[in-house]
Amino acid sequence: MVTLNSFLVLGAILFCIGLFGALSKRNAVAILMSIEIMLNAVNITLVGYSSAFMGHTHGERLTGQIFAIFIITVAAAEAAVALAMIIAIYRRRSTIDIGEINLMRW
């Protein structure tokens, strides 16, 4: 029996995997990919809620899906800008290892 819980747990696990990647990788592109995993995890959760409360008893609750669409939109924009930044940084410093990108250091 697949219930809402199944999707929520799936989303939580995916989120944590993405988070682990975002916190532990050194390659900036890998971090971006991990963040995309996290965003997908959130989308699954939102769409899961949306579907769970859709039906005759609850009416149409499509807000979750709307949110997912906006997240995808913003994620696409974010990916484009972030990759452009990575390329710009690479061009200037010949590395995309964020351990070496520490201009914010005190």
Binding site: L23, N102, M104, R105
Partner: peptide
């Protein structure tokens, strides 16, 4: 200020 390492992953953590 030692914590301000410039390491964004540290901040995320």
């Amino acid at each position: 200020r030692r914590t301000e390492s410039g390491n964004t992953q540290g901040y995320g953590a």
